[in-house]
Amino acid sequence: MNLNKQIRRLLLLDGLSNLHLAGTAWVLLLTLRGFTLTQIGLAEGVFHLVSLCCELPSGMLADLLGRKWTLAASRAMGALSALAMITARTGLGVCLAMGLCALGYNLASGTREAITYDSLLQCGQAERYLRVSAWQNIFWRGAGAAALLGAGLTAALGYRLAYGLDILVDVLAVLTALGLTEPAVGAPERRPRLSELPRGFRDCARDAADFLRANPAAAAVMLFNALVGALATLLGFFLQDGLTSAGAGNALLGPLLLLVALGGVAGSRAALLLERLPYRLTGLLCLAGVAAGAALSLTGRLPLLAAGGFLASACDDAFQMLTDARLNAMIPSQRRATLISVSSMTFSLVMIVLSPLTGAVWEGLL
């Protein structure tokens, strides 16, 4: 395996996977189309309900069938989600589009981390994972920031053209994923036939359950990380509407959302420094940072809204990367995607509870 070429392709894939004009500003586009925040909160809840149901099976598919094919399928689902959002006319249609988006997220969640870690492990460079992961997150957040910078332009273009551009980007991402090399580490001896998949799923589920029973500390790490991530994610979603309500016009909205997204880039760099601290202390510091960001965002003042979003994003990304590195060092390669998917499923459980509630509370506070 040419490790440097593999890493470059992974970085490109990360960038393309988040370079979505419409997908990044989906809350704004839906509000402009007349959907309420309560409806949007319910659609976000549907996203995480689908994610909860499909997260674990998608991780199993990645472990059983291969990681690069699963990543390609992820971006294909992203393109279908954008197409469904173009044709949606009711809340039900939006929920369908969000379900497809969730499936795309599921197929990538755990798979990206698994192919990255096992590529490094195969080349004897697993200790580089946190640094490579930081760069992946920088490419991911940087692409998202570029999309957010065009948030005002997105509103001017209209949702149809914006989602059409998202489809084009996803097609390019599919081609990039197909150019990856499948690591030999963690790969199945052979791909199971269709009739053998149910047994393969049972084996993956049993192995994952056995691991979590034997490693309760890993389960605790997943749960706490999910809480921090859910609070920061919800704040980021509803901040799009909060900035508009506070007086940010199309010209100012993009730069403000860009500032918020750059918090993730700052978090990527901060993770390399926070690695030196005890993990529990880092978790408490990041949770406090997210809480402080939420408090700033309730002031109704544009500079403080943006600062709160920046702080929450930075703390969330830093803690997420540190958690990924900690979990990857604990879990076996053969079930890496499955167990990372369990962590994402925990996040979805928390989001299902918090999404509709937070939408209603945010609407009442603002």
Rank of each mutant, 00 (worst) to 15 (best):
N2P: 07
I7T: 06
D14A: 10
S17A: 10
L19Y: 05
L21G: 05
A22L: 09
T24P: 05
T24M: 14
T24H: 09
W26M: 10
V27F: 15
L28W: 12
L29N: 05
T31G: 09
T31L: 10
F35P: 05
Q39F: 11
I40D: 01
L42H: 14
E44K: 13
L49V: 12
W69N: 13
T70E: 05
A72I: 09
S74D: 12
A79L: 11
M85Y: 14
L100T: 03
L100C: 04
L103I: 08
Y105H: 14
Y105I: 04
L107M: 06
S109Q: 05
G110R: 09
R112H: 07
R112W: 06
I115M: 00
T116G: 02
Y117I: 00
C123L: 02
Y129A: 00
L130R: 07
R131Y: 03
R131Q: 02
A134L: 01
W135V: 01
Q136H: 08
N137C: 07
G142W: 09
A146D: 03
L153Y: 14
A155F: 10
Y159C: 11
Y159N: 13
A162K: 08
L165Q: 03
D166A: 10
V169G: 12
T176L: 04
G179P: 08
L180W: 02
A184G: 07
E189L: 15
R193D: 08
L194H: 01
L197A: 02
L197H: 07
P198D: 13
R199H: 15
G200K: 08
F201Q: 04
R202V: 02
A209R: 15
F211A: 04
R213F: 15
A217I: 15
A219V: 12
A219G: 15
V221K: 11
M222K: 11
L223G: 08
A230R: 12
L231Y: 13
T233S: 14
L235T: 10
L235P: 10
G242M: 15
A246V: 08
A246K: 04
G249T: 06
P255M: 04
P255L: 04
L256F: 11
L259W: 03
G263W: 05
G264H: 07
A270K: 06
L281P: 01
L284W: 07
A291R: 00
A292T: 01
G293E: 00
L304V: 00
L311V: 01
A314S: 13
D317N: 14
F319P: 03
M321I: 00
T323P: 02
R335D: 11
A337Q: 08
A337I: 05
T338M: 11
T338V: 02
I340P: 02
M345T: 05
L349G: 13
L349Y: 09
V350D: 00
L354W: 03
L354M: 09
S355F: 09
A360P: 00
